[in-house]
Amino acid sequence: MVAHPGPGPQAGAGEWSPHEDFSRVFDAHFAEIHRYIARRLDTQTADDLAADTFLIAFRDRERFDPSRGGIRPWLYGIATNLLARHRRDEVRRWKALSRTAAGDDQESPEGAVTAKVSAQQVTGSLAGALAGLAKRDRDVVLLLALGDLSHAEVAAALGVPYGTVASRLNRARKQLREALGDVNPLKEALDG
């Protein structure tokens, strides 16, 4: 189940407005947007897309509506839209990571004998699952996982209703869990 919807993301008290001082928006968020894109694609592409994200945000700053969400969801939404143009590259990345991570596991004796399931050990499985997700579902999952946005913020970022985020997330969770082999490694990881 997803978290309680709440009132939706708001530009918090004291959060500056892009209408007033965009350089502060840039200083505060460029690195995290770059990181988000780089983790979904690669650093070189992130160099360009992150810059594009802020250029678009700057040009559309008059359209920014704090009542519809904060600055972070707004920026992540723009970045996610730009990422859509690289959908095939992203899928290729996840597939490659799936293969690479699987290979790493086989070559690692420590990984073979360690009972505890760590995040790194399931990278390959999760990357493969990400490659198989529908883009709209993948966007939701990765905005949550990489952007650390709340469900309401994801809804604002993608411009979809809260319930849509919930349904996409549930669908994606199911696929991710299946990719992990239905052994509930999440619980094992916790139990150690």
Partner: peptide, 12 residues
């Protein structure tokens, strides 16, 4: 799954 995913994806 989401938290695990966030940790499993290589950082940049």
């Amino acid at each position: 799954e989401i938290t695990l995913l966030g940790r499993a994806i290589p950082d940049a």
